[in-house]
Design a protein around this nucleic acid. Structure first.
Lengths: 221, 221
DNA sequence: GTTGTAGTTTTGAACATTCAAAATATGGGT
DNA sequence: ACCCATATTTTGAATGTTCAAAACTACAAC
C-alpha cells in the first residue's frame, strides 16, 4: 500500500505533467513543489521508479507510468470529492477546503469515497472547477481557455480557478469571479499587462495577466 | 504536533486506564493492544514521557499526564464524531465505521470537527454508545452496568457496546441488541455462564457471560 | 538461598523520509 | 576546446518507528 508521501509525490508529478507533457518533468521542479531539497526528490523518485510508478531518466527527468497515473487519479478523485463535500455538506468556505483535503485525501477509504460520490450525485467538477476523475480513472473533459488569452469583447463563463491558495481564492470570491459567473472582456491590453472585465451588469475588475492566467473560462463551441 | 502514532498510543493508554485505574497500565498490555513487540512499547513510552504525555515508572507501568489525557480525549472526540457522521450522514453500517474512523481521526482538522459536531446537533454518544468528549475535554457521563451483572427480571435498555469488532457488532445487530433496545433479563445463570433476554415481545437471545459483559445497559435511578 | 519464569528493558539493526553539503554532468558562450 | 552557471546526483547523517533477540529484574517456589 502506498504511503501518503508516495501518494503526494505521484499526485504532484501528475499535475506537473499537465504543464510539461509531452516532455519529462524536471527533478528540480518536483523538489520545489514538494518543498524538499533536490536530493530528497532524487532519492524518492528512484524509489518510485523501483515500484514502477514513474519512469526515470537520470538527469533527464521523469514521467508517470500507467500505474502511477492511475494512482494519481485515485488520489485526485479523493481530494476533489472531499473538497466538494466539505463545501456542499459542511459549509466550509471554498478557500479553505483545499488545505483540509490535503490530509483527508489519504485517510478516506474507497467505501467512504463512493458514498460521498453518491451523496453528491456523481459530480464532475469540484468547487474550483477541477475535474473529478471517476473510480476507473476517467477524467471529465472540457475545453478551457485562460482569461489571459481572451480577446476584447469575448463573452464567456468562468469555469475553473487554478491557483488554490486561500488568499487568492478569497480575492477571487470578493470580486465575484467564482466558477459559473458570466463575464465579458472589456479590454485586453498586452502592454499594460491587464484584462478588464464586465459582469453581472456592473463593469468590473481589472486583472494583471498573471492573475488572469490562473482563471479559466469555458470555450463555447 | 503529535504524529498519528503518538495519538494512537495516547488514545489506547487512555482506554486501558479505564480498566486499570487507579493502578498503572502495564507495559505488556499496551504492547499487545498496539500490536507491537514489548520493546517497541517501552521505547515509545519513553518518548511519550519525554514529551510529558505520560508518567512512566520503569518496570512499574505508566499513566497519562493531564496533557496526555487532554490529547487522548481530543482524539477520541474526533474518532467518535466521525463514526456518528459516517453512520448518520453517509449511511455506513455501524459495524464498519470504527475501522474507517481509525484513519480519519488523524486527518480531520478541528474546524471540520466543529462543523460535523454542529451538523449532528452536538450529540453526546456515538453509534456504539460511547460518550463523545466535548471540545474542552469533558466526557458526558452516564451510569452503565454490564448485562453480565444484571439479575433475573431486571428490565433495562441497551446503551453501549464495548467490543467494536465488526463481526461482533454484526452479531449484535442481527440479534436486535443495538443501543436503545429495551430488554428484560429472563434468566441469569452463573454456572451455565449465560444470560437469557426477552425483548421486543419475542423472547430472545441467550448470551454467554463473556459476550454479555461487553454489552452495557443504562442504570435507571 | 538457588532456580524458574513472566514481564520488561536494552541493544543493534532496519525502513522511510528528510537535510546539508560535496561531487558531478550539461549546455551555452567565448 | 575550455570554462561557467545551473541542475542534478551522491554521500553521510538524522528522525521516528519498528523488530528480533539478548539481558535483566522481581518475585514465587522449592
Amino acid at each position: 500500500m502506498a504511503t501518503s508521501t508516495v501518494e503526494n509525490y505521484v499526485k504532484q508529478i501528475y499535475l506537473l505533467q499537465q504543464e510539461y507533457s509531452p516532455d519529462l518533468v524536471p527533478m528540480g521542479r518536483l523538489a520545489d513543489i514538494m518543498g524538499v531539497v533536490p536530493g530528497t526528490a532524487t532519492s524518492m523518485v528512484k524509489a518510485l521508479a523501483d515500484s514502477e510508478l514513474v519512469e526515470y531518466e537520470p538527469r533527464g527527468g521523469l514521467r508517470l507510468t500507467r500505474g502511477g497515473e492511475q494512482l494519481a487519479l485515485h488520489v485526485l478523485r479523493r481530494h476533489r470529492l472531499v473538497e466538494l463535500f466539505l463545501v456542499k455538506v459542511l459549509n466550509l468556505d471554498w478557500s479553505e477546503v483545499h488545505d483540509e483535503a490535503e490530509d483527508m485525501e489519504h485517510a478516506v477509504s474507497d467505501k467512504v469515497i463512493e458514498k460521498i460520490d453518491a451523496f453528491l450525485n456523481y459530480p464532475e467538477f469540484d468547487p474550483h472547477g477541477d475535474p473529478i476523475p471517476s473510480a476507473k480513472g476517467k477524467v471529465p473533459h472540457m475545453k478551457w481557455k485562460s482569461l489571459a488569452d481572451c480577446q476584447t469583447n469575448c463573452e464567456s463563463r468562468i469555469s475553473r480557478v487554478l491557483d488554490q491558495d486561500s488568499q487568492f481564492l478569497q480575492f477571487v470570491e470578493r470580486n465575484g469571479l467564482t466558477p459559473g459567473t458570466k463575464i465579458k472582456v472589456l479590454n485586453r491590453d498586452y502592454h499594460a499587462d491587464s484584462v478588464s472585465l464586465e459582469f453581472k451588469g456592473r463593469n468590473g475588475v481589472t486583472l494583471g495577466l498573471t492573475a488572469a492566467s490562473k482563471i479559466l473560462v469555458q470555450v463555447m463551441e
